[in-house]
C-alpha cells in the first residue's frame, strides 16, 4: 500500500515534469523517473520480468536514444506556445479525460484477487512463463513483431542515410547548413561562442 502511494506520486510528478519542464533534457530525465516508478509498480503486480525489461529497455535503451538525439540536435528550451487558446483547450480536455478515466475505474470495482493464488499462478511473471506463452499462443504476434523490428531497423537506417543531394530545394538547405557551419567556425576562431551553442539553434520559430 505504502509502496503504491509513494510510487504513484513519483509517477504523476514525473509525468507532470515531462509536460511542464522547459529544457528537453530535464523532461527526458523526468520521464526516466516515471518509468522507474512504474517499474516498481510492476514488481508489486507480480510482473518482475517485465519490471526488469522496463528498466533495461525502456529506461535504459529508449530513453538513452532520446537523450542522444536531444544532445545531437542540441534541442534547446522552448518558447511559450503562440496560441493560448489551444493550451487552455488542451488542459481542459486533459482534465476531462483524467476525470472520466478515474470515474470509469472507480465505477467498475473488482474483487481484489487472492494474492497468494496470484503469486503462485504468475510466479512473478518470470521469463519462463512469458516465453511459454509468447512462443506458443502468441507465436504469430511474435513473428510479426520481429518483422516490425526489422522493418524499423531498415527504415531508420535508410532515413538517416546521407546520400548525394537530390538537387533543387535541398541544395539550398545544404548550402545554408554549410554557411552556418562556416559561421560557427569563424565565430569559434574569434572566440566569440556563447555558451557552446552553434548558431543553428532550434526553435528558429516561424519561417
Amino acid at each position: 500500500m505504502v509502496t503504491f502511494v509513494i510510487m504513484a506520486v513519483f509517477s504523476v510528478v514525473g509525468a507532470l515534469g515531462v509536460i511542464l519542464l522547459r529544457q528537453p533534457i530535464h523532461a527526458a530525465l523526468s520521464l526516466v523517473g516515471t518509468l522507474l516508478s512504474v517499474a516498481v509498480l510492476f514488481v508489486t503486480l507480480q510482473a518482475h520480468f517485465l519490471a526488469a525489461i522496463q528498466v533495461i529497455v525502456y529506461a535504459g535503451a529508449i530513453m538513452v536514444l532520446f537523450l542522444f538525439v536531444i544532445m545531437l540536435l542540441n534541442i534547446e528550451e522552448q518558447r511559450r506556445p503562440v496560441m493560448p487558446a489551444l493550451r487552455w483547450a488542451a488542459y481542459a480536455l486533459g482534465l476531462v479525460a483524467a476525470a472520466g478515466l478515474i470515474a470509469g475505474a472507480l465505477l467498475d470495482p473488482r474483487q481484489a484477487p487472492d494474492a497468494a493464488v496470484v503469486r503462485e499462478t504468475l510466479q512473478g511473471g518470470n521469463a519462463e512463463l512469458i516465453a511459454e506463452v509468447l512462443f506458443g499462443e502468441f507465436m504469430l504476434a511474435f513473428q510479426l513483431v520481429s518483422v516490425l523490428l526489422l522493418t524499423g531497423l531498415v527504415g531508420a537506417v535508410a532515413l538517416v542515410q546521407r546520400g548525394p543531394p537530390p538537387g533543387g530545394a535541398t541544395r539550398a538547405d545544404a548550402t545554408r547548413a554549410d554557411a552556418t557551419r562556416a559561421d560557427a567556425a569563424r565565430a569559434d576562431a574569434a572566440g566569440q561562442r556563447s555558451g557552446g551553442r552553434p548558431p543553428d539553434a532550434l526553435e528558429a520559430g516561424g519561417r
Binding site: 500500500m1 503504491f4 504513484a8 509517477s11 504523476v12 509525468a15 507532470l16 515531462v18 509536460i19 528537453p24 516515471t34 509498480l41 508489486t44 503486480l45 534541442i75 522552448q78 518558447r79 506556445p81 489551444l86 493550451r87 483547450a89 488542451a90 488542459y91 480536455l93 486533459g94 482534465l95 479525460a97 483524467a98 472520466g100 478515466l101 478515474i102 470509469g104 475505474a105 472507480l106 467498475d108 470495482p109 473488482r110 481484489a112 494474492a115 532550434l202 526553435e203
Partner: peptide
C-alpha cells in the same frame, strides 16, 4: 491490499497528462 481501481486510475491520470503534453508542446 491495493485495489485494482487505484492502479487503473493512476494509469488514466498518466495517460491524460501525456495527452496534454502531446497537445501542448511545440517541439
Amino acid at each position: 491490499m491495493v485495489p485494482t481501481e487505484a492502479y487503473v486510475a493512476l494509469s488514466g491520470v498518466m495517460f491524460s497528462i501525456g495527452a496534454v503534453g502531446v497537445l501542448t508542446r511545440r517541439s
